[in-house]
Amino acid sequence: MSEMNTATHVPVLEVSDLDIEIRGVNGAFAVVSDMNFSVRAGETLCIVGESGCGKSMTALSLLRLLPEAATIAGGKVVIEGQDFLAMDQRQVEDFRGEKIAMIFQEPLTALNPVLRIGEQIAESVRQHRKCSRREADARAVDVLRLVQMPDPERRASQFPHELSGGMRQRAMIALALACDPKIIIADEPTTALDVTIQAQILGLISDLQKRLGTAQILITHDLGVVSEVADRVIVMYAGRKVEEASIYDLFDRPFHPYTIGLMGAVPGAGASSEAGDRLADIPGTVPPLWNLPKGCAFAPRCANASARCLEERPPFEEKRPGHWAACWEHDDAA
């Protein structure tokens, strides 16, 4: 990798000490605790973890789009130096689209079913920029071309249901990109797609990122996708970060027993398997967030758990240069 210039060292998004709470039938409980991270222009940060660990809640909080049951209980989200959580509704709406935009797993949740694709994109453009209707329409066709939508003029006049799954995903990406946001949050953008279409969409996103220098936070549970696109990775477990490292450090030498377990559990990752082989599975399941064990949340499934692990939660600390983990174990190689 070449030396990065100093400008790219300034994060465009900084999240510090973020806590998110859900009010459920059994009272309030934390879904996300002590989240800290930042992303720079042109960088791709991946957040991985099992279902229910709080990935989507984290993503939604960055746009202040949390569902009603959830609230931000503490912490800061700073976008280009401005405190996003302190803004009023008007400023928030100006920021969305212009500074930060989101791509969802299911494009139909983001696209309005009764509006033509082109109209939706043009509407978003006009919301953020002083421009004529015609200029906005032209911009819509431009971004559809940017996402390599075939026949963009015609697609602009179609409704979401008239497009295939892959094309809808392109339309949603076009909508997210329409106002040149600085940060894109993509929550499982390819999970519902065939591998062939997934490959195209991943290719498209990284292409665009190279050209536009957008910062990206990509949420996925697929380590294959992570290995294809990430610069840096955060592994979450039960609402907390358990590991953070550069993509190479993480894949070369994962530290946390959960990350090590996940990597071993992916079929087809190693040498070609013989029928009858067994995968290294992680026993048990993720504990419910409203009833977490006292010490390390991973302890009930961890082969290395000691008495201390059951009593005290391990701090998130730098285990190797630039490689952080929350685990009582020490680095044997250090």
Binding site: R170, I197, Q200, G203, G224
Partner: peptide, 20 residues
């Protein structure tokens, strides 16, 4: 099209549309 699972052997996926 299947992801490589090795960050040093990334595919260069094409962004071209190829609908089924």
């Amino acid at each position: 099209s299947a992801p490589s699972r090795d960050p040093r052997k990334r595919h260069s996926f094409s962004a071209t549309n190829d609908d089924i």
